[in-house]
């Protein structure tokens, strides 16, 4: 069996696939961990307002909240289409 595996060429070990998948999902989870509960709603409503004026895609908006020691910065990135 081992010899067969060797001849077929080593496939990627399942544990390293697991590690990669976990690193991505955990990073995503942590990004959401500290954000206030209103963030998804805020994101949706901001997008609505912007869309009243400019035609942008759902995924053209990127919102994040960064916290420093004494203040928080709400960062909003919108990719506008070339007009």
């Amino acid at each position: 069996m081992k010899l067969l595996d060797f001849l077929k060429g080593e496939r990627k070990k399942s544990a390293s696939v697991a590690k990669e998948r976990l690193q991505i999902i955990v990073a995503h989870q942590r990004g959401q961990r500290d954000q206030p509960d209103y963030m998804p709603m805020l994101e949706r409503e901001l997008l609505e307002v912007i869309r009243r004026y400019v035609k942008v895609d759902q995924d053209a908006i990127n919102i994040s909240l960064d916290r420093d020691d004494d203040c928080s910065v709400l960062e909003l990135n919108v990719t506008l289409p070339r007009s």
Binding site: K13, S14, A15, S16, A18, K19, L22, Q23, V26
Partner: peptide
């Protein structure tokens, strides 16, 4: 199973968490 590459090893788990 860790040695065989089919189970997450302890360093990986520690690194992720």
């Amino acid at each position: 199973r860790v040695d065989g590459g089919d189970m997450l090893n302890l360093d990986d788990i520690c690194e992720i968490l």
